[in-house]
Amino acid sequence: MKPLHDSTTPPGTPDDEGATGPRTAGAASGAASSAGAAAPVIDVRGLRFRYPGAETDALGGLDLSVESAEFVAVVGANGSGKSTLARLLGGLETPAGAMRAVACGHDLLTDDGRMAARREVGVLFQNPENQLVAECVEDDVAFGLENLAWAPERMRARVDEMLARFGLTGLRDREPHLLSGGQKQRTALAGVLAVPRRVLVLDEPTAMLDPAGRGEVLEAVAALRRDGLAVVFVTQEMDEVVGADRVVALERGAVVYAGDVPGLFEDVGLVRRLGLGLPAAGELALELAALGRPLEPLPLTLDALVAALGASG
């Protein structure tokens, strides 16, 4: 199967004359910059953002760098700025300023750069209901390609590929309101990735799903990761973080931790402060720590907890 981020097909190349305009230059430069494999796909220094009318910055000078094929988790409580970050990385908001803000070689500080970034950085949002535009699954998967004016035959092939990949082939004609939450979110994911992407940003994609739907989405994301797509996974649930290459913790718009996953769990105080959702083993370990029996690193699975209790007891 063709990788999702196949750079042999320049992303978003229009097949029809009409859709080109000035943005073609951006897409072309994106394809060129992907040749330089060493450059990180996301490279942000001192990124600031403030919502209109707000008194404080939603993001105040944030640094983030993501290599290609890297899986980076972004955690933080509500209002920590993680959703804002997701939108900025996708070229969907205008930064207030930054020393450097580059996504897939496109400068997020310029209008053209953001437009170009939208073609290579895919963003999946939290509410599956409010992302589906079309009247049936396959039309929704095609929406991004229609906007990029792909020729119908090529679009057909790509849509079929995405449907198969996300297990949606049998649901292709289904109307969105007849889908389960997990199916909706998989449809949205297929639609985001139908446009060839180099980075996928997920903004709490499982927060509104039941356990079955959550499992479906996490499984799909795990498969993407195996294929080497760079993933920025924004979440509040700790067990979704465990397998990440790196984790970045935000608090009030600033990075308070950036490093490997075990490192975050070593700081029990920080984990508590971030208000993260811990798996049951972690919750119990925090309670134990409060009673004077800290288990470090924080166990997150039943096995780890049993082992830690055995070792320390």
Binding site: L284, L286, E287, A290, L291
Partner: peptide, 10 residues
């Protein structure tokens, strides 16, 4: 609850 469990395990 986790609190009860922790109390028993401390």
């Amino acid at each position: 609850t986790a609190a009860e469990a922790a109390e028993a395990l401390r």
